[in-house]
Design a protein around this nucleic acid. Structure first.
Lengths: 210, 210
DNA sequence: TAGATTGTTAATCGATTAACAATC
DNA sequence: TAGATTGTTAATCGATTAACAATC
């Protein structure tokens, strides 16, 4: 299927479809319709249909999509087929949690190693290396993605160092804005943002009760 | 200031402003303009100005906002003044990372305790209790927010149980869609979504290079 | 005063939704 | 065939951006 540009909002919905499709039982019905997907995920069916049409042309009237093909189409579109090697900086609790989580492989992400100022040994099978080795490791393995899980006050300097190592995409878990050049993408995993949405919901709930 | 309804996109930007404002040095200039904020965060200045106007009326031409008042106005708008008590279910690495992270207090969140099927003692100062105590604890403390950090296959049943305990807002870290009634809000901390954005950026980068 | 900044009103842009024709 | 589903075209909706008047 020809590659199309998709908006960021579509891009964010695709992995949601993907993870649901993967969670379906192997021995169930081999076909799934946009309607069924929409209902299962509580979304609008026109939206789902349009999203799917963007990444796959396997949809057939009255039948829907062949589940396995759809999974393959979305995976390929998102680039999950060719896995991305990444490194992580900051092996605290959060860093170790991400390092130990096995689920990222399914999304094409392979964390090769972690770096820390104090590389204490842990239970994870992945190596935790001293910060001094960062440059050499990134160069040698042509790392393009870095994950930042250091405290906020060190995040910017770690970020600068990663960019100097040739990294092009940064997944930032530190609660601080990072300044980067135009060609570098920072994806801020913004817990504060989520909290704001939750907090607002509770405020409204409580007020309504009065 | 009169309370206004804000869209979700505005709501998500407010904590970003807030955390930047808080990070500014105490002894710096006491005023900040929407323009300065926009430049520091790489956003459009009209957008920032409009967002600020929504939550504060302390803006003065030529001067900007008094930093401390602006922090107060945003905090109050987001409901961070009256802290929310929450509990967490699933004391694995991720759960412990969240439990141990001290930064949530600044966002009005107070995690009282964690629950786990196997409540091994940990270094955190917060108690980790057995799942059997969940209902009693939630009722006794009138908990309204629950944080789910259990493996995906248990997430839905934990979610159902939390709702039965009277919880109205759920922060879900399990990589799976949760079905809930209309009046319950689920905020899905969707790592897969972030990965998709990063992955797509790298794909485009690599392709452009060829 | 002049200039920087605010806040508001109007225009643009993009995404979602609705309506409908096509297909198996 | 009838009906479910697809994909497309048009309409609506909402958010962002641009233009401008007001203010210190």
């Amino acid at each position: 299927m020809e590659r199309k540009d998709v908006s960021k909002s579509v891009l964010k919905r695709l992995p949601v479809y993907l993870s649901y499709l993967r969670s379906l039982p192997e021995n169930g019905t081999p076909y799934i319709s946009a309607t069924a997907l929409a209902n299962a995920l509580g979304m609008g069916e026109v939206q789902v249909r349009k999203d799917l049409a963007l990444v796959s042309d396997g949809g057939r009237p009255k039948i829907g999509y062949f589940r396995e093909s759809l999974i393959e189409d979305i995976s390929q579109f998102l680039g999950y087929d060719n896995t991305t090697d990444a490194i992580l900086v900051g092996a605290g609790k959060l860093g170790q949690a991400l390092l130990g989580y096995g689920g990222f492989e399914a999304y094409g992400l392979n964390i090769l190693a972690a770096f820390d100022v104090n590389p204490a040994p842990t239970e994870t099978r992945k190596p935790i290396l001293p910060m001094e080795d960062l440059e050499a490791f990134c160069r040698a393995n042509q790392i393009l993605m870095g994950i930042i899980t250091v405290p906020a006050q060190y995040a910017q300097q770690v970020c600068d160092r990663l960019i100097a190592c040739g990294i092009k995409a940064i997944w930032n878990f530190a609660p601080i804005h990072l300044d980067v050049p135009d060609n570098i993408l920072v994806q801020h995993e913004n817990m504060a943002t989520s909290l704001a949405v939750l907090s607002m919901h509770l405020q409204v709930q409580i007020k309504d009760k009065k």
